[in-house]
Amino acid sequence: MTSLPATTDKKLGLVIDLDTCVGCQACVTNCKEWNTGGLMAPLTDLKSYGAEADGVWFNRVHTYEVTGHEACGASASRTMHFPRSCLHCETPECVTVCPTGASYKRTTDGIVLVNEDLCIGCKLCSWACPYGAREFDVFEGVMKKCTLCVDRIYNENLAEEDRVPACVLTCPTSARHFGDLGDPNSDVSKLVASRGGVDLMPELGYKPTNKYLPPRARKDSAAARPTPELKPITADGFLGWVDKLLSR
């Protein structure tokens, strides 16, 4: 059903820390290996060993250079890695445009999913997603997307601490966080509050659930990190300051 739930019980989602992400692609391949055997399996790869290789992925990491932002500090620019996946928006038009009901937003946890058995592969939902989060499986003729690892986060066959999205489980720098953004007291909500987490393209009104923590200001100038200057000691002549009673 492509009508959106008025509210959802929870707002499960990710918080991604752009100040910490080193662009290692771990979340990217871990997502791939989990999901290619998961709910949306397989994530088909085409021309896998040839020119123009192209496959279905749910998570992609870009690299940018940013100028004119406090995060650059004294440098002209700052390199910023930027992971991009489905934001499980609160009012996602990728769902409402779907003619078949294949796309839907869950009322319990807010996860946006595609039911592959209903999907006719019209691709409209991918047009409606501003974030490029949906990827069409050309070979299977259906739309695929990040499931927020719905087949992990509640999975009773996994140890409790492993019941998080694959990308979060693996992130070496802990730049990815998972939780209920609808609960103001959750760790993720507090993190977003304390770090000024933001929405991507808020102007479009999709109200993403996932939040991004912008890179913090660099501490690379005297102003940003005041430290007393080092003053030469000249009083006691050459190395005079060394002459004190030292013991081994």
Binding site: K10, L39, Y104, T108, D151, N155, L158, R163
Partner: peptide
């Protein structure tokens, strides 16, 4: 702390078999 599977009734198996 993990979440418990809610009753969404959308036919999604939230606890698929992972490994033999």
């Amino acid at each position: 702390m993990a979440f418990t599977a809610p009753l969404e009734n959308d036919g999604v198996n939230t606890s698929p078999h992972v490994a033999d």
